[in-house]
Simulated scan of single mutants.
Amino acid sequence: MKIHFHIGTTPATLSRDSFFGGMKIITAARSIWLQHPLNLSTHFSFQTKNAWEREIEGRIVRVEKTRTQIMGGLRTQNYMIYVDDQLVASDQGY
């Protein structure tokens, strides 16, 4: 799954591998892991809402993921991306 958005004037992509669970933000200058596929908490979590915050290009980028409680890993999940507390993109996917 890929969600394209902008951090100020910088184009960025939130990329998530549905098979291994890795999730990262990719810009032209760098790639930042939010969920690394080798981290056990990527695969085993009982939380229905997760949030990650990183500073990129001098701005605070927050990614929020929500899922259903019952069989949440097998259903679509909601992703919302905020830059400096402003919603810039949202989508559903695996």
Rank of each mutant, 00 (worst) to 15 (best):
Q86D: 07
T42R: 01
M71F: 15
M80H: 14
V88Q: 06
R67S: 11
T42S: 02
I25H: 01
R67A: 12
I60E: 07
I7F: 09
N78A: 15
Q35F: 09
V63W: 06
G93W: 00
T42D: 01
T27P: 02
M23S: 01
I70N: 14
H6K: 13
W52L: 09
A28P: 01
D91P: 00
Q69K: 14
M80A: 15
L14G: 00
Q77S: 12
L87W: 06
I25T: 05
R30M: 14
Q92P: 01
S18R: 11
Y94H: 12
D85G: 14
I26W: 00
R62I: 13
E53N: 15
R59M: 13
V83R: 03
I81F: 00
V63H: 03
Y94S: 07
V61Y: 08
T27S: 08
S15E: 10
G58Q: 03
N50C: 10
N78I: 09
Q92L: 10
F44D: 06
D85M: 11
V83S: 05
E53G: 14
Y94I: 03
M23H: 00
K65M: 14
V83F: 06
L87N: 10
V88Y: 05
W33Q: 05
F46L: 15
T10M: 10
D91S: 09
L34R: 00
S18M: 13
S18G: 10
N39K: 14
A29M: 11
E64Y: 13
R16F: 06
G8A: 08
K24R: 13
W52G: 02
T10A: 07
T42G: 00
Y82C: 06
S41C: 14
R59D: 08
S31I: 00
F19L: 09
G72M: 05
S31N: 08
R59W: 07
H4T: 06
L34I: 04
V83H: 02
N39V: 12
Q77L: 09
I32E: 05
A51I: 07
I56K: 04
L87Q: 08
K24E: 12
A12E: 04
G72F: 04
D17F: 01
I26S: 03
M80E: 12
